[in-house]
Amino acid sequence: MTSLALFSLLYFLSVFTLTDSSLSSITTAAPPAASKCTLLNSFQPGFFVQGDYVIGGIFPLHFNLKKPDLNGTYRPPPINCNGHRLYPRAFRWAQAMRLAVEEINQNPALLLNHTLGYKIFDSCGYPLTGQRAVLSMLNGLSEENSSMCTNGSSLLAVIGASGSAQSIVLSRILQPFRIPMISYSSSCACLSDRQKYPTFFRVIPSDDYQVKAIARLLVQFNWTWVGLLRGDNDYGRFAAKGLLRELQETKVCVAYQEMIPLLYTRQGGLRIMKV
């Protein structure tokens, strides 16, 4: 993985709220009062540096997510990652992005009279927190200095996300704004569809190559009876679909398929093992 790959964020809820006078004006057909733009929740980046131009970064610094109770009867609390399970490799990715930005700012030939900033968020390896991060990048750092109500975001690009399921969600949020997202590890072949994901790019090959390699290995070693185990996400679905396609004209028989569910249970795991 190169430094370019590392030039590659958690769910941030922002809505427009109407004041009491605005609500009354709607019901009485009177001239509407001025609406007040506020952010109902906030999420702060792990690393932040101001600049004339800003690049976002989304890295799974932690893999475990503390999920709050979201029952819809009160303002949702912040979603926090478990600080006891740091992912060292992702931490090095984030540090490499910081170093690259510093090197660019120190080179007068690259950005003359301008500086490059960054906002790096911890996604916990989960699409929901990655969604909050992207919206936080677009809206601003906090309720006090949000740029959403007054002008456009200074965000130029987003480096991320780590998983294909996350990148699918995040790229759809960024697509209407024509903000490119460059992933360093999302390899689902589905993301190569330029009609669905015109602003998504990556610096690693898609799973098409991996699927073809697996199919050739099975043929090479004369395996004629295999089982297929995949995850319950777009990454697993597209990979399994591609492998079945590659094995159609061979003697390899996929005897059964099993799926590891998102809501994993011990009983489900034992059933898969027994199969």
Rank of each mutant, 00 (worst) to 15 (best):
R85P: 00
F59S: 00
F63A: 07
G152W: 07
E143Q: 11
P31Q: 04
S21G: 11
L156W: 03
L65S: 07
L141I: 08
Y74C: 11
N41R: 05
S147H: 06
A100F: 03
P60F: 14
S147C: 05
T150F: 09
S153I: 01
S21I: 02
R89V: 13
Y87W: 13
C149M: 06
M97R: 04
L23T: 07
I26A: 04
L40Q: 13
S136H: 09
F91D: 13
Q131T: 08
Y126N: 11
T27L: 08
P45E: 12
P78R: 05
Y87N: 13
L128R: 09
A94G: 06
K67E: 15
N80R: 14
F48L: 04
N82C: 09
A133I: 03
D122K: 04
D69N: 12
P108G: 01
L39I: 09
T129N: 12
A33Q: 06
N71V: 14
P60T: 11
S21V: 02
A29G: 04
C81F: 15
S136L: 03
Y53K: 01
G152A: 08
L138W: 05
P88K: 06
T115V: 01
S35N: 13
K36F: 02
F47W: 12
N80P: 04
N107S: 08
H62M: 10
S153F: 02
P108R: 01
S142I: 03
Q95V: 08
L23I: 13
R92V: 08
L99E: 15
L61S: 04
I26F: 10
S146C: 06
S22M: 09
G152N: 11
F48P: 03
T17L: 11
F121C: 08
V54M: 12
F63N: 09
L70D: 13
P88N: 12
Y118W: 09
L112W: 11
P68V: 03
I120M: 02
G130Q: 07
N107I: 01
E103V: 02
V101N: 03
F12R: 04
C37D: 12
L110E: 11
G125S: 09
H62Y: 15
K67F: 15
L70E: 13
N107F: 05
A96V: 06
L116C: 00
H62W: 15
Y118P: 06
L135I: 07
